[in-house]
């Protein structure tokens, strides 16, 4: 698997650029991935989503249902796409160090 360098550290990513080990995430990773996703600045709303994803993943071992994400953060889906152009699954999850969703997505 390829490695990327973030703030001097070697971080392993898969073929799609998602971190292979969510536990290895640190804050600078979000900024790094954001740049790759064409996101210039990480606002409070960005962090609301990222933090909710990380918390949910830490508890449940999987990303949350999209609708629940929207409800709990109070950010409608359309807005989430504006914040993260690749969407909640392929965009926000990447910034939070979550694995890329597999299956029929």
């Amino acid at each position: 698997m390829p490695f990327v360098e973030i703030e001097g550290k070697q971080v392993e990513v898969d073929e799609d650029g998602f971190m292979t080990d969510p536990a290895a995430w640190f804050e600078a990773c979000a900024y790094y991935f954001a740049k790759g996703e064409g996101i210039e600045q990480l606002t409070d709303d960005h962090w609301k989503v990222i933090n909710y994803l990380k918390e949910y993943y830490a508890t449940n071992g999987i990303a949350p249902m999209i609708r629940k994400l929207c409800k709990e953060t109070g950010i409608p889906l359309k807005e989430i796409y504006e914040l993260f152009p690749s969407g909640p699954a392929k965009g926000a999850c990447k910034l939070g160090g979550l694995p890329k969703p597999t299956g029929c997505v």
């Binding site: 508890t59 071992g61 999987i62 969703p101 597999t102 299956g103």
Partner: peptide, 24 residues
């Protein structure tokens, strides 16, 4: 191939865990 890995690990494509399933 990644989905096959999820199948072997969890018995579903998305890698759903029991905790995630119950919460959802």
């Amino acid at each position: 191939t990644a989905t096959a890995g999820a199948i072997l690990k969890t018995g579903n494509h998305m890698g759903l865990t029991k905790a995630g399933i119950i919460d959802t």
